[in-house]
Amino acid sequence: MIEVKGVSHDMRGQAILRDVSLSLPRGGVTALIGPNGAGKSTLLSLIARLQRLQRGRITVDDLTVGACADRDLARLLAIMPQSSAISARLRVGELVGMGRYPWHGGRPGAADHAAVEAALAQFDLTGLRHRFLDEISGGQRQRALVAMACAQGTDYLLLDEPLNNLDIAASRQLMALLRHMARDQGKSIVIVLHDINYAAGFADRVIALAGGRIVADGPPAEVITPGLLRGVFDTDARISVIDGRPVVVV
């Protein structure tokens, strides 16, 4: 379980998060939605200790973020940050292989190779494994980064806008895969999404953030309402319900 208690965060005197508390039990896909600048990415990177916690407390299972050993957390929780500017010049296979580092510390064994192969196959990257990251398309690079996070083989997976650069087929495939991992492998997945329809279509739970606060939290059908769109996103889009899931008509 990820537990966030009373977390506030400032940047240059500007409040990004204000007293956020929430708990995410194991399992399921949780989508974080909200307008630009709501604090979604900051919340995610605080949970994954990419930024230092200023106020409040975050625990993942029995590990306290900021106090536990970094390797232990890396074996429990993987993150794909939004701006994954990888500074080294790597091939796709090498990048995905780096995801296993927390387990083997540099000396990959058979299990690590198998996990990398599985991740490459899952994300349709086997044919691209020998290509450099700067030689493939943006969508392919995005898939490689998600594959790297998956190869890390953690119970918790945090993804910051993984659908960037992906076409509709790849987006649906990725979301379906994540849902499958959550249902059948018991993974807990937290994902920042911009497209509310993907959140509505694939998430088990939706959390809406605005101005650094949680403004709605629950199953998609309860959270994604005309009131939310108007109040939080400042837009008058219509919502219709298809197969029991809300769909925003854009």
Partner: peptide, 21 residues
Amino acid sequence: MRFRLDVLALGTEAATGLGEP
């Protein structure tokens, strides 16, 4: 340090995510 250096070369965020701040 050779393996840790590989991870550090990925950049701050990726390295932190892999447990190598």
